[in-house]
Computed example of a mutant assay.
Amino acid sequence: MFVAVDIGNQRLKCGIFRFTREAVSIPKPEQTFASQHPAEIVEFVSRAWDERQPAQGSEQGAPLTWWIASVNRPAAGNLLDCLKRERPADPLMLLSAADLPLAVRLPAPDRVGIDRLVNALAAERMRHPDHSAVVVDLGTAITVDTISADGAFLGGAIVLGLASAARALHEFTDMLPLLNVESMACPEAIGKDTEAAMRAGLFWGTLGGIRELLLRQVESLGQTADVFITGGHAALFVEHLGNARHVPDLTLSGIALVAIYYEDRTRQGK
């Protein structure tokens, strides 16, 4: 078993995976947990891992490999420090673009967010063989990225996420309030007060931007594309995006694919 960790700008999310030889498109975590605090991630994994050891015939405290993808350097440093202190025997793998079994047709692959690349790796495994793919990730930033029909990452677009846009409206104006978008539902397009108007603009403006990017990117790809949507606000928008497939743990599954790739290479002696 191993742990995949996705370190974003606002929180860390981890998944516990099992190496398997089953024919599945992407691996799925057996357990997941999210927190803003690295110590809580380590505590959760340690407790879950130690509970499994007696059933597996291993001693409690046995090492566990961590595969980490981060777009937040301070948070990654805090997690690594915590792991070195609390679980010093555990192997740690901090992923970069060069570690992924994914073609990246850009001038500087190492400057692309690793979350975008592991998302693309997972989507590449899930798409129909003769289709390209587009991945929409709704987090602190919204990314809309493309994968070619021959499985290469081609780039995409980055725009403000829902919470980031709400914060910008509040911080760069004098009187607009800070909205809590975590509990947002689909609003009316015509707001009857300031907050309602802000919700209408945030929701429908975000949705319109995603739709336009999807339309233009699919046109640019020139063929049928499978669309996958993930991230903290994905469930809010997926029903408005046609045939988009919601994959909540897409990023963790992409990280897990890298772990399985290297496990297979190790077994083959490569």
Rank of each mutant, 00 (worst) to 15 (best):
V3D: 00
A4N: 04
R11H: 14
C14Q: 01
S25T: 09
R47M: 14
R47W: 08
A48K: 13
D50C: 09
R52I: 10
R52C: 10
G57N: 06
S58G: 09
W66K: 04
I68F: 02
I68G: 01
A69S: 11
N72I: 05
R73Y: 09
E86L: 15
L94D: 02
D99C: 01
V104T: 06
V104F: 03
L106Q: 12
A108Y: 11
P109C: 09
D110R: 11
D110I: 06
V112W: 02
V112N: 04
I114D: 00
A122C: 03
A122W: 00
S132C: 15
V135E: 02
A141G: 14
T146S: 15
D150M: 08
G151M: 05
I158T: 10
L169T: 10
H170Q: 12
F172E: 11
T173Y: 02
M175H: 13
E182P: 07
A185G: 14
P187W: 02
G191D: 12
K192Y: 10
K192I: 13
I210G: 06
L213M: 15
L214N: 04
L215C: 14
L215F: 12
A225N: 04
R245P: 04
V247D: 01
V247Y: 03
P248Y: 05
T251L: 12
T251Y: 03
L257I: 04
Y261V: 00
E263V: 00
